[in-house]
């Protein structure tokens, strides 16, 4: 999970941070995932995990583009799509804010995040022709290795 990088572990000084000094965005140009999608996913993840709350302001396109080293149009594209998906809200002359999603909505979004993530594993299961029952068993085992509330896999 590299969408939040602890302060000091990344040499790109000046990246936007949350109040508790965690970074919000990270771009990997070699991942094969378009950068605008990486940014969209990170905003969605931050909302699902509660790092970003309804009403929180997003950093401006300009302030983000230089430290991230990314074309501002790419950030604008990510923001516009998130506005279109009603995840962010545009207010005239003010920074973008996280839309007021209800609790049920946030729960849905969390499941959406997981679904997106699992799609890759499912593709791998098919590619490697792994038995479905084995795959499900493995997922249960991995879940059992961690406690609820614990972050990250051992």
């Amino acid at each position: 999970m590299h969408y939040i990088v602890e302060a000091g572990t990344n040499h790109q000084a000046g990246l936007p941070r949350m109040e508790d000094d965690r970074m919000l965005f990270y771009v990997d140009p070699h991942s094969g995932v378009p950068i605008f999608r990486q940014l969209m996913d990170q905003v969605k993840l931050s909302i699902a995990s509660g790092v970003l709350k309804p009403g929180d302001e997003l950093p401006s396109i300009r302030s983000l583009s230089v430290p991230l080293g990314v074309n501002p149009m790419t950030i604008s594209k990510a923001y516009n799509l998130l506005v279109h998906d009603e995840i962010l809200e545009r207010r005239p002359g003010k920074p973008l804010v996280v839309a007021d999603l209800g609790q049920a909505e946030i729960a849905d979004r969390r499941l959406d995040q997981l679904r997106e993530n699992l799609r890759q594993s499912v593709a791998l299961v098919r590619q490697l022709e792994i038995d479905e029952a084995d795959a499900i068993k493995l997922y249960r085992e991995l879940l059992a290795e961690t406690e609820p509330g614990e972050k990250g896999v051992k």
Partner: peptide
């Protein structure tokens, strides 16, 4: 540098 191209180019 493909990384630079990915970051910068539209």
């Amino acid at each position: 540098h493909m990384g630079d191209v990915e970051r910068m180019a539209s």
